[in-house]
C-alpha cells in the first residue's frame, strides 16, 4: 500500500473537522474523495501533506509514518499537493513557479527532463514561461499548479478541486491531463465536488459528509449507488 490513512481525527481550535477517517491508496490508483463543501475533503488532504496534524490516528506513506512530519519532509518523501484554488505564486513567473516545485531537488539533469515532461502535458506553460502567474486565467493557473507539483516528481499527487471555477471545456481538458498523468504510472488522490468527473476518473472512491466517511467502494459501484446518484450526481 502506498498511502494508508488510519483512523485520523483533526481538530481546528478544539472543534473536530474530520473524525476517524481511514483511506487506503494502492500504487497506480486514482482514488477520489467526494462530498459537499465543508465535508472535510480539504482538511484530509492538508493533513496528508502535513499542513495540519491529526490529534489521533496515523498516516503511513510507504514504510514511513508521516503524520507528525512538517510539510517539507512530506514533500521530500514523495507527496505533492495541488492546493485548492491553485495557489500559484502570483508575483513570480511561470518558470519560477515551476522551479519552486523542484525546490528541494539537486539532480538538475533529471529535473530538466521532468520540466520537459511538464511542458508536454501543458504546452501553454512552455510558451508563457516569463509571464507573471497572477495574470493567467483560472484554467492556466490550474495547469501551472499541477505542473509545479509534478516538478518534485512525486510518487503521490494530491489534487484538491482541480475543476473548481473552470469552464466545462477546461474541466474536460484537465480531466484528460489527469488521465495522462495517471497513465504514466503516477498515483493520484483526487478531491472533487464535481462527483461525476471524479467518479469517471477514479477506480475507488470515498464519500465524506460532515467530517465522516459515509460510503466507500469501487468507483463504478458508487456511480450506480442510489444515494450517491441522488446527492451528488444530480439524480
Amino acid at each position: 500500500m502506498l498511502l494508508n490513512v488510519k483512523d485520523i481525527t483533526v481538530h481546528y481550535n478544539k472543534v473536530d473537522a474530520i473524525r476517524n477517517i481511514s483511506i487506503e491508496v494502492e500504487e497506480g490508483e486514482i482514488v477520489t474523495l467526494i462530498g459537499s463543501n465543508g465535508a472535510g475533503k480539504t482538511t484530509t488532504l492538508r493533513t496528508i501533506s502535513g499542513l495540519n496534524h491529526p490529534t489521533t490516528g496515523e498516516i503511513w506513506f510507504e514504510d514511513q509514518r508521516i503524520d507528525q512530519l512538517p510539510p517539507e519532509k512530506i514533500n521530500k518523501a514523495g507527496i505533492a499537493q495541488v492546493p485548492e484554488n491553485r495557489r500559484v505564486f502570483p508575483y513570480m513567473t511561470v518558470a519560477e513557479n515551476l522551479e519552486m516545485g523542484a525546490f528541494l531537488r539537486k539532480d538538475e539533469e533529471k529535473m530538466n527532463r521532468d520540466l520537459e515532461g511538464v511542458f508536454k502535458h501543458f504546452p501553454i506553460l512552455k510558451s508563457r514561461q516569463k509571464q507573471m502567474a497572477g495574470t493567467m486565467s483560472g484554467g492556466e493557473q490550474q495547469m501551472l499548479a499541477m505542473g509545479r507539483a509534478l516538478m518534485s516528481n512525486p510518487k503521490l499527487l494530491l489534487l484538491d478541486e482541480p475543476s473548481l471555477g473552470l469552464s466545462p471545456i477546461m474541466c474536460l481538458e484537465i480531466a484528460k491531463i489527469i488521465r495522462d498523468i495517471h497513465s504514466e504510472g503516477r498515483t493520484i488522490v483526487l478531491v472533487e465536488q464535481n462527483a461525476r468527473l471524479a467518479l469517471a476518473l477514479a477506480q475507488k472512491g470515498y464519500v465524506l459528509e460532515t467530517g465522516n466517511i459515509v460510503l466507500k467502494g469501487e468507483a463504478k459501484e458508487l456511480r450506480d449507488n442510489e444515494e450517491v446518484k441522488k446527492a451528488y450526481l444530480g439524480g
Binding site: P70, P71, P83, V88, F89, P90, M92, M100, S152
Partner: peptide, 12 residues
C-alpha cells in the same frame, strides 16, 4: 507570497 503553498513545495 503564500506560506502554505510554499510549504507544499518543500520550502521550510
Amino acid at each position: 507570497q503564500d506560506p502554505d503553498a510554499a510549504a507544499l513545495q518543500g520550502i521550510s
